[in-house]
Design a binder for these strands. Structure first.
Length: 914
RNA sequence: GGGCGAUUAGCUCAGUUGGUUUAGAGCACCUGCCUUACAAGCAGGGGGUCGUUGGUUCGAAUCCAUCAUCGCCCACCA
């Protein structure tokens, strides 16, 4: 395919290749899944907003899902990742309204049907964008299954579920104090309101006592514009300052309404003046007080936050303008006692940022009591497992019966699933279709030919999450024909950010239990349903350097597409993942080093990923560029190559096992780091250097072939993390038959390995490193041939019995000679590796004083080490109490340490005697 | 107010039920190298008494308590 490019560029160039391979995978239909006899591995995507763009949170999230699904695919499972988008009622409607407004069109002028046409047009125009961006990231979703929460099938499921719950008596309609967004003109759920401290002012306003000329009661309020809605003043019954006013009446300034002075334990005596104005229409707590005392409710606002007729004054003006006006007018009339600066918490709409107005409205609710219990049980019984586990605490805290509140499921919007309730006269008919509702109405009313036009459907739509909570069932068309559901459900894992644990995760668990039982058939029904996923992996939130959540509104998110264009999808995937331990928030931006003032910008991590691609690319160039011949060149080379291959094979098995363990516990970033150091360090820096022939010479065919196979295995292991570069290298390594692709290559599981062999080579590597260090410290060129003596002991003898080890050290450390010695070597640099002692002969006088200092420092370290071990072993409770293996290790540590001390002391003595 | 989490190298973070980790990685820093795969590289190196003070234990970065600082979630005093 790209054979010609192999040897050319020293740089890996992702852009072209990524497109090419994605297209290839699509052509081969690797992402498509149909139920078959294989084990299923399914994931449903957390559907992003249909009109959204890819941000860093999505990148992280979907990279993780892709890693999991790709690995499952390589393991031969029937991997199915269902993509899709969410209609996101409020967010999308807000965008459409804005666009229409820019065109001079008001939503209310064009009406529901016309508005929805615009909304659908908008969805068609921008809806697929985020999915295309996911493709650029390499997401291996089964695109044929792409779902949208307002697809006919998914919409039908929403209707079905609504009717079902209504029949079960869990859905009810009632007047409630709700959070009203005056900008979007809709009710918000508690979760959609964001409270923040803001600067405001606390007005102390005095109300005259009825029937007096100069007796007053002073209240404190931050919202003087609501005084027209006051219907009482409340005081604490224990407050002696006001005992004399109990049962009397006060007069509301400006409008002159006479209101009772009541006593209620809710009032805090210490706060403000200890007297509270009660506005039942505009405050949650005041409303409760109002109910206790049967107070009148005066709603002084319109639905857009302007003053209503009931306010009597300032009608039609905005609440915040009125706040200032009222303050001025009260001042003029002598009612202001004082005004204090004050900080209080203000609730704002998550979507529109408008200050939320508590308001009494008629809404649909879902009774959460039973649902909450089910959702709690599912997690406490470990049927659904959380990673990391501590999110259980947060989940529990929200769902326990003291905190759980009924779910307000209606929204005053048009974009979404319209509530399937029809009104006729005093009656309400909840049905999946208008026809059914009409039939119900005809029966109830006895009017056989009642026309549909007489019925009025509820104007509202359901909360977006009311469709999302069905997602793991509805994307498999589970409510209509559950065949696929039986195969793919429960999904294996849900990967999501923890901030929607309540909105979405908990509710999906609830829905799973509520409906999967009957849908999956008798076996499951007996268990009253099962969870929608076996595990939930919570990713951290991606934050900027100020630890703020990355969001479009703040504009603090790097452009994901730009990043991919710059570093390649593989580079970005690497960057995202390498600092993303499960559940911990990750800071992904531009921290500044206080010392150097240099910007360690966000690209650092991605750059590292890009460099990694480059490294592997060059390893490929090296191998493919080597001249080859049939037979081994000489005996030494043959020994080295054999050892290198043997060592690396064992190391590969060991690594594969570790990776497997890390996958099982979702330690993906650690797995990636392991592969990174394994490939860069062990493979490139050691293995390839060991087998690399001197310049101009050839490598033997057997070693060459074996190296290709090892490289191939590495690509299989790394593929889930960095799919593009691994696929490209896979194809450059060998000529491939059609269908022989890295994406479906078996995932190396790892098997038994020889730990002793690995340790021996590790020691040899330590020897090499020490020699290099000695060269550095003594200013000797890296390639100047030197002689190394090894002190002959039982341990060094055993070490060097390993065939090829000696030759390998000679090659890697550029030695001219390596021999055993029985005695100390004069004028040499000595060092320890493992428990062995080595003397490097350098062709210049050594600095005796410096050498002594170095050895003394080392001696001190070793003595500390030995002392610790001695203390432990001297303690009978340790020897008896600790596991034998631990004690044995401690003994080994001690004897090794003692051997080292002995060696150092000998050396020191020799030097001192000079 | 209720709950959760964090505090480990200059920076960003790992450290998996307490013992093979004399505490690791990347970046940054220092030294030497344009060595014929890669200078976006190679070979080395320095740097941390794991926030405080106690406790449990034969043994603590790891468990418990306390304090300090920071972050987040939920609820909220007008």
């Amino acid at each position: 395919m790209s054979e010609s490019s192999t040897a050319q560029s020293t740089r890996y160039n992702p852009t072209e290749l990524e497109n090419k391979w994605y297209q290839h995978w699509m052509d081969q239909q690797y992402f498509a899944s149909k139920p078959d006899e294989r084990e299923a591995y399914s994931i449903v995507i957390p559907p992003p907003n249909v009109t959204g763009v890819l941000h860093m949170g999505h990148m992280l999230n979907n990279t993780i899902q892709d890693i999991l699904i790709r690995k499952a695919r390589q393991e031969g499972k029937n991997a199915c990742w269902v993509p899709g988008t969410d209609h996101a009622s409020i967010a999308t409607e807000a965008k459409v309204v804005k666009r229409l407004r820019e065109q001079g069109i008001k939503k209310s002028d064009i009406g529901r049907d016309e508005f929805l046409k615009h909304a659908w047009a908008w969805k068609e125009e921008f809806g697929g964008k985020i999915l295309d961006q996911l493709k650029q990231l390499g997401a291996s979703c089964d695109w044929d299954r792409t779902s949208f929460t307002m697809d006919p099938g998914l919409s039908k499921a929403v209707m079905k579920v609504f009717v079902d719950l209504h029949k079960k008596g869990k859905i009810y309609r009632g007047k409630r104090m709700t959070n009203w967004d005056p900008e979007a003109k809709t009710v918000l759920s508690n979760e959609e309101v964001i409270y923040k401290e803001e600067n405001s002012r606390l007005f102390h306003v005095r109300y005259r006592i009825e029937g007096t000329e100069d007796e007053w009661i002073t209240i404190a309020t931050t919202r003087p514009e609501t005084i027209m809605g006051d219907t009482a003043i409340a005081i604490n019954p224990k407050d002696e300052r006001y005992t004399h006013l109990q049962g009397r009446k006060a007069i509301v300034p400006l409008i002159g309404r006479v209101i009772p002075i009541i006593s209620d334990g809710y009032v805090e005596m210490e706060f403000g003046t200890g007297a509270l104005k009660v506005t039942p229409a505009h405050d949650m707590n005041d409303h409760e007080i109002g109910e206790r005392h049967q107070l009148e409710i005066v709603d002084v606002f319109n639905d857009d936050g302007t003053m209503s007729e009931a306010a009597q004054l300032y009608i039609g003006q905005d609440r915040f303008a009125v706040r200032k006006l009222v303050a001025k007018d009260l001042e003029k009339a002598g009612h202001i006692v004082k005004i204090e600066d004050y900080r209080n918490t203000v609730g704002r709409s998550e979507r529109t940022d408008a200050v939320v107005e508590p308001r009494l409205t008629l809404q649909w609710f879902l009774d959460m009591k039973d649902f909450a219990k089910t959702a709690l049980d599912a997690v406490s019984s470990k049927e659904v497992q959380f990673f990391p586990e501590h999110f259980w605490n947060m989940y529990h805290n929200w769902l326990n019966e003291d905190n759980i509140r009924d779910w307000c499921i209606s929204r005053q919007l048009w974009w979404g699933h319209r509530i399937p309730a029809w009104y006729y006269g005093e009656d309400t008919f909840v049905a999946e279709t208008a026809e059914e509702a009409l039939e119900m109405a005809r029966q109830k009313s006895g009017i056989a030919d009642l026309p549909l036009s007489e019925l009025k459907q509820d104007e509202d739509v359901v909360d977006t999450w009311f469709s999302s909570w069905l997602w793991p069932i509805s994307v498999f068309n589970g409510f209509e024909s559950p065949e696929e559901l039986r195969y793919y459900y429960p999904t294996n894992v849900l990967v999501t950010a923890w901030d929607i644990i309540f909105f979405w995760v908990a509710r999906m668990v609830m829905a799973g239990y509520e409906w999967s039982g009957e849908l999956l058939g008798p076996e499951t029904a007996a268990k009253k349903g099962i969870m929608p996923f076996k595990a939930v992996y919570f990713t951290g939130m991606v934050r900027d350097e100020k630890r703020r959540k990355m969001s479009k509104s703040l504009g603090n998110s790097p452009d994901a597409i730009q990043l991919m264009d710059r570093y390649g999808a593989d580079g970005v995937r690497f960057g995202m993942l390498s600092s993303a331990a499960a559940g911990n928030d990750i800071v992904f931006d531009a921290p500044i080093d206080p010392k150097t003032k240099k910007v360690l910008n966000e690209s650092k991590l991605c750059e590292q990923g890009q460099n990694f691609c480059n490294k592997m690319w060059n390893a490929l160039r090296l191998i493919k560029g080597l001249p080859r011949k049939e037979q081994a060149i000489d005996k030494e080379t043959a020994l080295i190559n054999a050892l290198a291959i043997q060592w690396f094979e064992h190391k590969l098995e060991q690594t594969a096992i570790k990776i497997q363990e890390q996958f099982e516990t979702f330690r993906l970033s650690e797995a990636l780091m392991n592969l990174y150091t394994f490939i860069w360090g062990d493979f490139c820096s050691w293995y390839l250097e060991m087998i690399k022939p001197p310049y101009g010479e050839a490598i033997d065919e057997a070693t060459y072939q074996r190296t290709l196979e090892l490289f191939e295995k590495l690509m299989s292991l790394l593929h889930p993390f960095m799919p593009f570069v691994t696929e490209e290298i896979w194809h450059q390594l060998q000529d491939r038959q059609a269908g022989d692709d890295c994406i479906i290559s078996p995932y190396p599981r790892g098997g038994s390995f020889d730990a002793a062999l690995i340790t021996k080579v590790d020691t040899a590597m330590e020897v090499v490193a020490k020699i290099r260090d000695a060269r550095n410290k003594n200013g000797i060129k890296q390639k100047e041939p030197l002689t190394l003596f090894i002190q002959k002991t039982s341990s060094t003898s055993e070490l060097f019995e390993l065939a090829g080890l000696k030759e390998m050290i000679v090659k890697m450390a550029y030695l001219s000679e390596l021999t055993f010695t029985e005695e100390e070597i004069d004028n040499s640099v000595s060092f320890l590796a493992g428990t062995g002692k080595y003397f490097l002969l350098i062709n210049k006088q050594i600095d005796v004083a410096a050498e002594i200092a170095r050895l003394e420092e080392d001696l001190g370290r070793q003595q500390m080490f030995v002392k610790k071990a001695e203390k432990k072993l001297g303690n009978p409770r340790f020897v008896d109490g600790a596991p034998p293996a631990v004690v044995e290790k401690e003994r080994k540590k001690l004897s090794d340490g003692q051997a080292r001390i002995k060696a150092i002391e000998e050396e020191l003595e020799k030097l001192r005697n000079k």
